[in-house]
Design a protein around this nucleic acid. Sequence first.
DNA 1: ATTTGATTAAAATACTTGTTTAAATCAAAA
DNA 2: TTTTGATTTAAACAAGTATTTTAATCAAAT
Lengths: 209, 209
Amino acid sequence: MAKGKTKDGSTEEKIKEAARKLFTKKGFAATRTRDIAEEAGLNLALLNYYFRSKQKLFDIIMMENFRQFLGGMSAYFADESLTMEERISRVVNAYIDFLTEFPDLPLFILNELRGNPSKIAMKVNEEVGPARSQLFKELLNAKKEGKTALDPFHFVANLVGLTVFPFVGKPLLQRVTNASDEQFRAYMEERRKLVPMWIGMMMKGSGGS
Amino acid sequence: MAKGKTKDGSTEEKIKEAARKLFTKKGFAATRTRDIAEEAGLNLALLNYYFRSKQKLFDIIMMENFRQFLGGMSAYFADESLTMEERISRVVNAYIDFLTEFPDLPLFILNELRGNPSKIAMKVNEEVGPARSQLFKELLNAKKEGKTALDPFHFVANLVGLTVFPFVGKPLLQRVTNASDEQFRAYMEERRKLVPMWIGMMMKGSGGS
DNA sequence: ATTTGATTAAAATACTTGTTTAAATCAAAA
DNA sequence: TTTTGATTTAAACAAGTATTTTAATCAAAT
């Protein structure tokens, strides 16, 4: 063998990282293979040498993106040793950390989800299935005991809407509120405490069937 | 002149509507001019006869989409004759109506906003400027009087996050919660009352600097 | 009936882009 | 040193696609 090995990070990983960056930011159709090669600092022929086609490379990136985005969600909700409040707080914090580092991921996910091939649908269930059943069981229990009246749908919609939407809508929010990048960061820091508090208020207040 | 006139809706409008449908759903790069022509039931040459290029056609659609999406926001907030609670309720209801009819619009807007050319930035200010100053003035007043501690940034983020995000994230929410299209509609109907109520709770509770 | 401008049809053109190929180069392993 | 496989270089190839062109056709206005 020679310098760039198959296993370690070198070349194959360079290609994947360049592809991830461009695919995630611009989508499949708007990304050219030549751009990926240039971004990776490698030759175009290498793309087809390592991955057979643009489509195959994209599929790999897409699956990894899905796993990364949905994985976090599941991990925290599955932990039965924590109170619901604590779990919410951890999920919110984990997502704010995560999205600060990878701000383009959610929009990518939402775009891909719209095309909705069954391949993706299965992936979602696979990644989010266990946590979902656990969460729903507890929410429905709490509802029976009168602790909360918040339907699981609204719960998830509110949690994701309040936590990940600000990142998706960052350009819009910054324009509307005249917030600098630094101010945006500060607002997101505030949200680490505010969102769990708001969710708590919603769960106590009345909230749909 | 002949059958299809320039002024009335006929041909030019057919092209624009076909283009709007495809551009809004699939984006610029993934939309082919041939598809637009076919969708409009017209000859391909007509596209370049009426609009000079795919890009020019796209720009027109994009601007109209922006105006439509942001215009509603402004219209209701500018009305000083209403209480804040009433305005919130109207904006939420107007957006739920609007997004039920045009569910692909917000994702289109968010995608375009990411590329952020100054052309778009100006458009946002133009459409949303007046309502913004009006809204911010009142929110800051209310804050002084101790009526609310909710920062304008969080107010907008929450309002949009709770109202438009569910439509953007519909495929994700439906998968995670196993909700049918019919159930989704029902949840959105519930939100017409729930979201204004939640926003009200947030404005009374403590909320950021 | 003639004219006029919209519309179609069919192709040609030009450019972009995904993919492949063939021959060199180069670094390490044998 | 020889060999081996990764990497480069430079093209070529094959589709796909935006755009243009040219010559018909067609419906209404004159």
